[in-house]
């Protein structure tokens, strides 16, 4: 299953996946949101959008539509797999 930042729940973390098609906007890359980085969802705005994330030490608010472009692997899933 394909996860994106938009599929995280508050407090969950994930690792940003490779982006072969260049879907992640340059400004986000420049602010530290690039493949391999750990991303945590800090808060969701009251109307479910935008999302407040922490990535590479940067605290950023991005819209859901942008978050959906950024594929991740949920860190939690990894833990669950390990437990199994």
């Amino acid at each position: 299953m394909n996860f994106t930042i938009a599929s995280l729940a508050v407090g969950e973390q994930g690792i940003i996946q490779q982006d072969p098609n260049g879907q992640i906007p340059l400004i986000l890359l420049e602010m530290g949101c690039f493949p391999g980085a750990n991303v945590e969802l800090i808060q969701i705005a009251p109307l479910k959008d935008p999302l407040y994330i922490k990535v590479n030490g940067s605290h950023l608010a991005i819209r859901k539509e942008t978050a959906k472009l950024i594929k991740i692997e949920k860190s939690e899933n990894l833990c669950e797999t390990l437990k199994l």
């Binding site: 935008p50 605290h59 950023l60 608010a61 991005i62």
Partner: peptide
């Protein structure tokens, strides 16, 4: 365009 806002300390 992309909406990106830094949430400063």
């Amino acid at each position: 365009s992309f909406f990106v806002v830094e949430m400063p300390n």
